[in-house]
């Protein structure tokens, strides 16, 4: 294994070649916020929260897909990045209907945690209050599109780990929506194995167990990592 050395937030970090900047930064003690990223799933670089500054690169680069390189000088925090990240979170809050007080994920929500982390005490952009639906057709789980941030973790976990490919993104732009099957009610999709992995990895309260009340949904993305590691090692975790 070749080891490369780079500078992240002023600290010298050694990492295996082939590692992403996100892996290198987290190993080196820098906390980069992420939302669409989840260890064990393919990266999509869609939420743009993990953008970092790299010396000699005029554009910001997403840490989740950028390969660490020898001698790279990277900054994961700066006033500019803080402002951009806050705006990303504001955009997410304003494009959906996120009402924490009545949400199953209140207190265990990655979006909520990030809002606190980036200091978003209010949104400077107007809320759009879109009209969105809720799918309660599945016997065990529900999908509340109002709380969906289109991170596509559910799409990826179902296709890449469970192998069922129940989920997809339908439509375009602001009309994008997570769809099951060919835009059928979730309960009508035969491909669903009822495994619940999508619920576990959902960062918000969009996917939930039907019995969950306010504040009662806790996601378990770490279970995915245990599973993925076990598969890679070809044995018990």
């Amino acid at each position: 294994m070749t080891v490369i050395t780079l500078t992240i937030d002023g600290r010298s970090v050694a990492t295996a070649s082939g590692a992403t900047l996100l892996e290198a930064a987290r190993a080196g003690g820098s906390a980069i916020p992420t939302l669409c990223h989840l260890e064990g799933l393919s990266p999509v670089a869609a939420c743009r929260l993990c953008l970092v500054e790299i010396d000699g690169d005029s554009r910001l680069q997403p840490a989740c897909v950028t390969a660490a390189a020898e001698g790279m000088v990277v900054r994961t925090t700066s006033p500019r990045l803080a402002e951009l990240r806050r705006t990303v979170i504001e955009l997410l809050f304003t494009e959906g209907n996120h009402v924490c007080a009545i949400c199953v994920a209140n207190g265990h929500c990655e979006l909520q945690d990030l809002a606190v982390a980036v200091g978003m005490d209010h949104s400077r952009l107007p809320y759009r209050f879109p009209s969105r639906s809720v799918d309660l057709s599945h016997p065990l789980f529900g999908l509340d599109h109002n709380r969906c941030i289109l991170c596509t973790r559910c799409v990826r976990v179902c296709a890449e780990v469970e192998g069922a490919h129940v989920w997809d993104v339908g439509w375009r732009g602001e009309h994008c929506r997570i769809i099951s099957g060919l835009d059928q009610p979730w309960g009508a999709v035969d491909a669903c194995t009822d495994c619940g992995k999508c619920v576990q990895v959902c960062p918000t309260g969009a996917l939930f167990h039907k019995g969950d009340g306010t504040e009662e949904k806790e996601g378990h993305p770490e279970q995915l990592q245990v599973l993925v590691r076990a598969r890679q090692q070809g044995g018990a975790p």
Binding site: A45, L91, L92, T94, E95, G173, E174
Partner: peptide, 13 residues
């Protein structure tokens, strides 16, 4: 296309 947040929600705002 709606994939990334700034373009999907930013162009609307």
């Amino acid at each position: 296309c709606g994939k990334c947040v700034p373009c999907r929600a930013g162009t609307v705002q």
